[in-house]
Design a protein around this nucleic acid. Structure first.
Lengths: 237, 237
DNA sequence: CCAAGTGCTGAACGCGCGTTCAGCCGGGAG
DNA sequence: CTCCCGGCTGAACGCGCGTTCAGCACTTGG
């Protein structure tokens, strides 16, 4: 099974080069089973070549990983510039839809974001910056609520979104839907739950004081009654 | 380095049994570096014993993993019953605070939730059920907003929370705080961002129509203007 | 004092991994 | 035709893994 996610790489008569097939196979398997548990031989078999050829092209298994990182980051970049030239922004939803064409790539991405590494860190940085820009736009349009610290909010939203996706197996088990493996037509419950949370929040304003009390209590467990407000960073409107 | 998280296991004169030391070491290393990348020898060295002894006690490396799962699930259960007998509920915040005493355990938990497995799936189920109960309580007290589908909301909140935590390295990099590795005193920015999101939401109600239009547009990209409402599941109040 | 049992280890084994190497095949240049 | 050169392979190598095994030290029971 060869994944065809590159822009111009249709199922035309011209076969893909071996190098590209290896890269596809590696992204697929690394994303699915993890780097450590995937053998070079498995990658080679999936690509229809011999194991030594993988080494010949990428130097070593680690070299292959680096190439995969670069590949995924590259696809992501073109995805973004495509979105920009289409006039739409690369929201979480858009990312999810776009990557429908190549689920292995999304799997790989989720693993890599967690593991880190220079290439992926840079990609995440970029995601945060982009998110900040179009969140600011949307805020100007009255679609998004203002934040005390937009950057921190953007980071948390990103990590929560990707984090939940990275646990999509549990999601499938608990809600019956995996936005990664199921087609968009089936995303209903996922979209509904996420929309509800992000539209209205979860806690009522009345919970704020409870929250502060909880934190204060932990900070100084001797006091059973919360102090007025020592808070600095975590004070909320 | 031996992690002491068991209830009565202070640094008293009585040394821990080898079996327990192995278990601690395994939880720590599996949680830190993953199961596949951790060697039996490394576990043995950390526990101050020989590799064959590990096999002697747990049958195999997989047996060790199962025992770790059981161990972590067990600690979690006592944690919960402690919380209940204290009269407080095991919220996300509470979990985070409690696990300060044993960060390796939390690391292990996050990995295992993602990977699944009978033991951990059961634990996650329990977390969801518990969450449903105390969310209903809090809702009755007027602290939590009602939901169209409380279970789905609980699941998404759980996965988003744990998911974000599982990416705590990126969090540290991007916000300067990791609620897993830093002490609660430093959690300010994290708590602030999360509180803001969950208290007030992110999207304004005005964004709802945009959201529906986006989904409709994807469902039937030919229509540039969104249809009225075909929606079933994802309709929102 | 011996015999059996327990907890544990060092040495060794087999396996499968990533990697190396010598050489095959096919197509273009001289 | 001959030569060469790059893409590619099968066989082989060394290493480190999980696991096995024989046996040591120490306790326990008679």
């Amino acid at each position: 099974m060869v994944y065809r996610y590159r822009a111009g790489a249709g199922p035309g008569p011209k076969e893909k080069g071996a190098r590209d097939r290896i890269l596809d196979a590696a992204v697929g398997l690394f994303g699915e089973r993890g780097f450590a548990t995937t053998t070079l031989k498995a990658v080679a078999a999936e690509a229809g070549v011999s194991a030594p050829l993988v080494v010949h092209h990428f130097g070593s298994k680690d070299g292959l990983r680096t190439a995969c990182d670069a590949e995924v980051a590259g696809v992501f970049r073109t995805l973004k510039s495509d979105a920009v030239s289409r006039g739409s922004s690369l929201t979480m939803f858009e990312i999810l839809v776009q990557f429908q064409q190549s689920r292995p790539l999304l799997h790989y991405l989720l693993q890599s974001i967690r593991d880190g590494g220079a290439q992926m860190d840079e990609l995440v940085d970029q995601l945060v910056e982009d998110s900040l820009v179009y969140t600011a736009d949307a805020e100007a349009q009255g679609l998004v609520r203002p934040s005390l610290h937009p950057r921190h909010r953007a980071v948390m939203l990103l990590l929560m979104s990707f984090g939940a996706l990275s646990m999509h197996e549990q999601m499938k088990r608990l809600m019956g839907v995996s936005p990664i493996e199921d087609p968009p037509e089936a995303w209903g419950p996922y979209v509904a739950a996420v929309s509800e949370i992000f539209l209205y929040g979860v806690l009522r304003p009345e919970a704020y004081e409870e929250l502060v009390a909880l934190i204060e209590h932990h900070r100084d467990p001797d006091l059973s009654t919360a102090r007025p407000h020592t808070a600095g960073e975590e004070s909320l409107p």
